[in-house]
């Protein structure tokens, strides 16, 4: 049992518990906080994987911005425990969970078996991974690729963000006009 393994199981367990807490808590604030815990554990997993930059961005974007926005809205609307009217009950809830477990089983099956036949599971890739452990991906590499080969997707992303910005302003603006 090497340290990486131990850390993986700690962070993995925390993220799973957090995720289950998100869907079990009645109150949205508690769900949001559990989700933050999950995001943190995932940032930890990214660090184990050598993706330090992604880990930092994960915390900045998800924990620092997106979840604050969630909390802000929950507090602004003063949402308490809301009615779950129309929620699946009894048997149907059981069916939903069984379907979910089936989905998980599929995912696990793919993860364990199908990879053996692809490039990812090949021995060449394994060697590459071993080499990479000693020489992790630097922020520099990410930046270089982002501004050369993937420049177009990068610019498209900025357009998406701009569209979102305008969309939000339009959504809020309409409210004001009807009120006036």
């Amino acid at each position: 049992m090497n340290p990486e393994m131990i850390l993986f199981f700690i962070f993995g367990a925390v993220s799973l518990i957090g995720a289950i807490a998100v869907i079990s808590f009645r109150h949205p604030i508690y769900s949001a906080l559990s989700l933050i815990v999950t995001f943190f554990a995932q940032a930890g997993l990214f660090v184990i994987l050598g993706a330090h930059f992604v880990a930092a961005v994960q915390v900045i974007v998800y924990a620092g911005a997106i979840m604050v926005l969630f909390l802000f809205v929950i507090m602004l609307l003063n949402l308490g425990t809301l009615s779950e009217k129309g929620a699946l009950t009894g048997k149907l809830k059981g069916v939903a969970i069984i379907l979910g477990i089936l989905l998980a089983a599929q995912g696990i099956y793919i993860a364990v078996n199908a990879l053996n036949n692809t490039e990812v599971g090949s021995e060449a890739a394994q060697e590459k991974a071993a080499a990479l452990t000693n020489n992790p991906i630097e922020t520099y590499d990410i930046g270089e690729l982002l501004f050369s080969k993937y420049l177009l997707p990068f610019e498209v992303t900025s357009l998406i963000l701009l569209a979102a910005l305008i969309g939000v302003i339009v959504l809020v603006k309409r409210e004001n006009q009807t009120e006036n």
Binding site: G12, L82, S83, K85, A96, G107, I110, A111, V112
Partner: peptide, 19 residues
């Protein structure tokens, strides 16, 4: 990948059972 699959599934179940 197993952990990722489990997290994804929890998300799906959440969408199914919460309103």
């Amino acid at each position: 990948l197993i952990l990722s699959a489990l997290l994804f599934t929890i998300g799906v179940i959440g969408v199914l059972i919460r309103r």
